[in-house]
């Protein structure tokens, strides 16, 4: 399926009930400019994130984090339990210790100050078809 798609598809969601949209605006724009198909669902519960990831059959899940790491860990767990094996990356307010915990789960983290170019490069690398 992934091979036949021209542009990889990325889901962007906010893990917390917090409407700040500056990060989503900047990152979604950069990813679209780089050729990705970006689906932004904004503030969503874990169930909504899982539902959208499966329904849209996305190649990558991006979580905009504004809350506690435990909530993000739960979302990651629910995605995996539901059979979504798309890679996950996360940006936003992620303290170093929280980043470590997410990295341990295989989630790449891009805290404030990350270069947009690095985020785009990560999206390319994470959506490359397996050799």
């Amino acid at each position: 399926m992934m091979d036949s798609r021209v542009n990889p598809r990325i889901l962007l969601a906010k893990s917390s009930l917090d409407g700040h949209w500056r990060g989503l605006n900047v990152v979604s724009r950069a990813l679209r400019d780089a050729g990705f198909e970006v689906i932004v669902i904004g503030m969503a519960t874990s169930a909504e994130i899982v539902g959208a990831a499966l329904e849209e059959d996305v190649d990558l899940v991006g979580l905009n984090v504004g809350g506690r790491v435990e909530a993000v860990e739960r979302i990651v767990g629910e995605l995996r339990a539901a059979g979504c094996d798309a890679p996950i990356f996360a940006g936003g307010t992620i303290a170093p210790s929280a980043a470590k915990r997410l990295n341990h789960l295989g989630v790449e983290t891009y805290p404030p100050g990350s270069a947009l170019g690095d985020i785009v490069a990560a999206a390319r690398r994470l959506t490359e078809p397996a050799p």
Binding site: L17, D18, T45, G67, R68, A71, R74
Partner: peptide, 26 residues
């Protein structure tokens, strides 16, 4: 707390309890 106050939700509102870890962070 932004989830309850900004939305005028009680803490047992489904949109709040779905993210119980974040309650009280802001």
């Amino acid at each position: 707390d932004r989830m309850t106050a900004d939305h005028l939700y009680d803490v047992d509102h489904p949109d709040v309890s779905a993210r119980s870890e974040d309650v009280g962070l802001s």
